[in-house]
Design a protein around this nucleic acid. Structure first.
Lengths: 104, 104
DNA sequence: TTGACATGTGACCAAATGGTCACCTAACCT
DNA sequence: AGGTTAGGTGACCATTTGGTCACATGTCAA
């Protein structure tokens, strides 16, 4: 799941699907090719990884395969390392760092 | 930044630093070695990646280097793909998928 | 049924990544 | 000064990953 997020092409696919879901492989290939040179097969492989990571949900309709973004795993990543008090602690740390290091 | 999250050892380091910050390389090495066989050098490399990804902030104190978790980039990942209406849309999609595919 | 269209699979190659080691610098403590 | 401790660097190797291609499957439409 984390590895699925680690590739720029896959993040582009997620961005595209966030904008509008229900796209076919062909449509997604067009979008990717605008940004980087890649064949249909490459896009297909990336989509399979995103599916396995449960970041993309698919729905077959005849010979077409419609892809949709699944935001739940990303929410889980967020919840793993963020709590509502963390941001305040970070601010305190930054201040401390400045105080301790700005004297050469 | 995304690649930094793609490795289990680095996620373990983030988890450890979330629990308590201000740890030295030596402390972190101990924690990692409990879970997986790795030398100090391996841990050091992973920490460097986390620093470059801005997921870990360091603070030198004498010959020690204290590591802290920086949650801001993770917050940004969350904000990139999640909006407050997305969750509801996902529920609708799941229902649709069931309706359309559960007839063989 | 015949052909065109949308997608999937397995083999294969080049490049990036994870990990270790030998060696090095710098700080603390008698 | 000398020894010990904390950490860093560059070379190197094994494995994984990104990408393509030849080929195969299944679906629509005439």
């Amino acid at each position: 799941m984390f590895k699925a997020l680690a590739d720029p092409t896959r993040r582009l696919l997620l961005d595209t699907l966030r904008e509008r879901g229900g796209r076919t492989l062909g449509e997604l290939e067009e979008v990717v090719v605008e940004h980087t040179p890649m064949t249909r097969f490459g896009v297909s492989k990336h989509l399979r990884l995103l599916e396995e990571a449960n970041l993309v949900v698919t729905l077959r309709s005849g010979r077409e395969k419609l892809h949709h973004l699944n935001p739940v795993p990303i929410q889980q990543v967020h919840d793993r390392w963020i709590d509502k008090y963390t941001e305040r602690r970070l601010t305190a740390l930054t201040t401390l760092k400045s105080q301790l290091e700005e004297k050469p």
